[in-house]
Design a binder for these strands. Sequence first.
DNA 1: ACGGCTGGCTAAAGCGCTTGAGTTCGGTGG
DNA 2: CCACCGAACTCAAGCGCTTTAGCCAGCCGT
Lengths: 349, 349
Amino acid sequence: MRRTPARRPTIKDIALRSGVSESAVSFALNGRPGVSEATRDRVRRVADQLGWRPSAAARALSGEGAATVGLVLARPASTLGVESFFLQLVSGIQEVLARRRLGLLFQVVEDLSAECDAYRRWWGERRVDGVLVVDPRADDPRPPLLDELGLPAVVIGSLPPGDDGTGHPGISNLWADDARAMASIVSHLHGLGHRRIVHIAGLPDLAHTRRRIQSLRTEAERRGLTDVRSITTDYSDTEGAEVTRRVLASDAPPTAIVYDNDVLAVAGLAVAAGRGIPVPDGLSIVAWDDSVLCRTAHPSLTALVRDTAAFGRRAAEELLALLDGGPALRVEDELPHLEQRGSTAAASP
Amino acid sequence: MRRTPARRPTIKDIALRSGVSESAVSFALNGRPGVSEATRDRVRRVADQLGWRPSAAARALSGEGAATVGLVLARPASTLGVESFFLQLVSGIQEVLARRRLGLLFQVVEDLSAECDAYRRWWGERRVDGVLVVDPRADDPRPPLLDELGLPAVVIGSLPPGDDGTGHPGISNLWADDARAMASIVSHLHGLGHRRIVHIAGLPDLAHTRRRIQSLRTEAERRGLTDVRSITTDYSDTEGAEVTRRVLASDAPPTAIVYDNDVLAVAGLAVAAGRGIPVPDGLSIVAWDDSVLCRTAHPSLTALVRDTAAFGRRAAEELLALLDGGPALRVEDELPHLEQRGSTAAASP
DNA sequence: ACGGCTGGCTAAAGCGCTTGAGTTCGGTGG
DNA sequence: CCACCGAACTCAAGCGCTTTAGCCAGCCGT
């Protein structure tokens, strides 16, 4: 025999018990003028004695907004394996949203067009007040779409080269300076005497991939390095391993490889180990983004670490500012820092 | 100058343009009787010409439910590093929810009591129609709470020993047979001649941790193995490494270690490598749950693999069934299978 | 003593949708 | 020819909350 679930109290119940009108209750509970302090107190007491909570639906319907923000992750199922990045990011985001009692509507989809559909649906159904957009890319259809819908958004991640982020009045951008970060890696490797460097990158369409590739080229030219190149992958360990194998088998194999994420790096390390190439003495490895993988690998991997949860927090804060009617901003996140571990050493001659 | 965002059409707009009443529109769009096929078609056409979407808030308010389910992850920020498990699970869940246009409200919190708060809040605010509960534990306060709230739920994961899952009429349970899975691991190791086995487990309060520990003991007794034990950890690579170090330094170190997740296993592997203990010849390692980590480790790790996305899908399906008024069920997921790789071999004498 | 304020409250409309209770109208059976 | 019926609609209430307009008592100044 199933217990009747407790009935949820409404402001009507509160009004009845405290002997005032529903409007008075609303005023009292929302800290609006129009009720005496005495009444306000009484109403408040009754409210939380009854365990009252405002109905999100009713609030939303009467123009208060949905009290929810959305986040969609467009990744083919195969790719979203390990990546510590997202849970950390989400965890940071939540921290901030929780303070304002905002919910996070989350969705994982296969591709970009499904992502856009999700935005349209959320907008149409008035489910979210704003969204957080990850993985900006070249010719990204999302900012214009969101602009058209009038859905406030924060794009998380550096914009593609050439896009300065203006022109989308309702959209903020929280960016990390991938160019400078790449420069710091190149500087480190160059300082160790490396002249042949390969960058095994992620998805070619992602904005940060392009920034990194571009920066690598610039830095190489600046230093007169001619044997430096980038190769894009799908971020999977499979491709990471395959590309590494190919690169190491070439005539003049690199003395250092920079991987665009931890999974690629670890996969690469495994390949090196399999071919009997000692790391770091025969090959230096740098991972972009730190994680347990990098720390537990053997040797542990020199990695570009950033505080992903903090990144998420800042993104959420920017979105809140936007929802509060603030202007769209471009803000830069802290520069990540290169944590030197056991996988980088002086180039062997 | 900001473009005025498009105004969202309501059924009133549709009613006006198609020359019928709002109710007729509602009937037409929801496939209810009471309108002619001709009218229905016309209304439908107008609706999607206008790009109409039902307002989730209005629907919810008029008794249709929130069209949303909730999932909260109670993990201290430190722990939710790599674990491929959750994103995979969520990805599977979404696949099923998407078919019914249900949203997923997601929350990451620090601990169990915050998780319970989240449920209360969601219930009070009528934000979700049901929830998915992960990481069941001993003396779990969540099922009784959800029962009291009358919030349909599916508990994902095996219940603690002694709890048969009955007694919570609104709650289904999707369980994996951790006991048999552990038995299969022990059988594999025993068959390879291992007699001293250590199980480096996860959080001691989690139900599946207890099941595994209990099963290990049972299996050991059945085979007359006396030098077998479990040690719990917080799932972090740090503790995994530390416990491994301690265990390997003991007088009669184990010849095989079973780790409760991929992170622990990789951390353990690194420790072994650091101490010059060859894997698998000097030590066999088994990881519970597969991931890139296991596959890219060197040697690759023998792992207990399960189809996590499928697990998520089934859980979501159970929840849907519950929301449709079906009875609470206990269903068992497929047995995971032990993928033998390079980290297990015959015990050295 | 009276008009005008102001503080404290109530009444009522409205948000977008569902739904049960009418209403209309073209048949049908008697 | 009329009562009756069901199909196809319309009306209006209601979900829980916010918000605008309005009401009334009491206090001010003159």
